[in-house]
Design a binder for these strands. Structure first.
Length: 337
DNA sequence: AAAACAGCCAACCGCACAACT
DNA sequence: TAGTTGTGCGGTTGGCTGTTT
């Protein structure tokens, strides 16, 4: 049942709060608390609706509000939590003491979102962007000369597509290397990620859903997440790291093994040191039975590769596509070696 | 100097849902 | 059981401010 929120709303003042109104609200809450928001404005001598008072208090006047710029640490926390929770701003805010959901939401929309887009990451899916506009921009960034001077729009398009694919591959490699580089770090960076008061990333995150129901994360926790120009330093045993990641993937990071409400996850997540701690890397669209084998069976469709399949494209899937492609295999080997 | 534009963010809107009557 | 109320939440808006033309 949904009541009409507009009823009587015209009787109340709207718009920006004055310092006098703020003072009245703070004074009243200090003395009496805020058990009943509907009755509060009248008792406090305010011509505002209770909802307006509640918002003003929770988003601005509360004494524990932390104002000012978001730190890089907070930024990382937001990005990582968003990759798991999506637009659950209040849930994200629970892990950032002093920050409100509204503040985080605004920060996301005005700062982080843009950064991710500029990095070629879809802020909604946390996966590489494959839309043509993005690659057109990147292509322009790299210089039009690289694409030749063909006047044929089809040729131009194909060339753009080819370069876009290569750019996507470069980005995949970068993120893979970052995973390797930060795999241990992320084991978790949750200590620093969420601060000492939040030792467990997933504590309290679950409400019956599993991670498979949430958005997957494309990238790991990374120190240079927002520095697209940073060069990742690969550890010496990259291939071993990849093998470990695959092993983790095959060995129990499937959706059914990641019920957030399951205590075993919380404990194992916080203590494991030899597995990829980033469960969100598992494709949400990949069922437990959909193994690498099945994915290999579908690799024959070149359109999937050249155009990408953004809805289901993960680091691992992308890696497999890369290493299975004859043309690119030597290319990547060269880079990795 | 002024108009146009863009970015930012506080506040509002409306839906959802639990608790209550 | 149906209706009402209170609150939480995510999306959107409008106005302020700084920058560009």
């Amino acid at each position: 049942m949904v009541r009409s929120p507009r009823s009587h709303s015209s009787d109340f003042k709207k718009g920006p709060w004055t310092p006098e109104e703020d003072e009245k609200l703070v004074d009243y809450i200090k003395r009496n608390g805020h058990e009943n928001w509907k009755a509060l404005p009248k008792l406090a001598g305010l011509n505002r609706c209770g909802k307006s008072c509640r918002l003003r208090w929770t988003n601005y006047l509360r004494p524990d509000i932390k104002r000012g710029k978001f730190s890089e640490e907070e930024e990382r926390v937001i990005v990582n939590l968003h990759s798991v929770l999506g637009n659950k701003w209040s849930r994200i805010a629970n892990h950032l003491p002093g920050r409100t959901d509204n503040e985080i939401k605004n920060f996301w929309n005005t700062h982080i979102r843009k950064k991710l887009l500029q990095m070629g990451i879809d802020p909604n899916t946390h996966k590489p962007r494959t839309d043509l506009d993005h690659f057109l921009n990147l292509s322009q960034f790299l210089g039009a000369a690289q694409f030749g001077n063909t006047a044929d729009p089809v040729d131009t398009f194909l060339q753009l597509q080819a370069d876009a694919t290569q750019l996507a591959n470069i980005q995949l490699l970068r993120n893979l290397l970052q995973i390797m580089n930060t795999n241990t770090l992320a084991n978790l960076e949750s200590n620093s990620l969420l601060g000492s008061q939040n030792p467990n990333l997933f504590e309290g995150l679950g409400d019956g859903a599993t991670i498979s129901n949430t958005k997957e994360s494309f990238y790991p926790v990374s120190q240079d997440l927002f520095n697209p120009l940073a060069t990742p330093q690969a550890p010496p045993n990259d291939f071993q790291a990849i093998s470990n990641l695959w092993a983790s993937y095959e060995g129990g990071f499937g959706p059914e093994g990641l019920n957030i409400n399951n205590n075993s996850l919380s404990s194992s997540y916080g203590t494991q040191t030899d597995q990829n701690p980033l469960p969100a890397l598992v494709s949400a669209s990949t069922s437990p039975g959909t193994s690498i084998v099945n994915q290999k069976e579908s690799k024959g469709d070149p359109s999937n590769y050249s155009t990408g399949t953004p809805a289901t494209y993960t680091v691992f899937e992308g890696w497999e596509k890369l290493i299975d492609d004859d043309y690119y295999s030597s290319y990547w080997k060269d880079i990795l070696e």
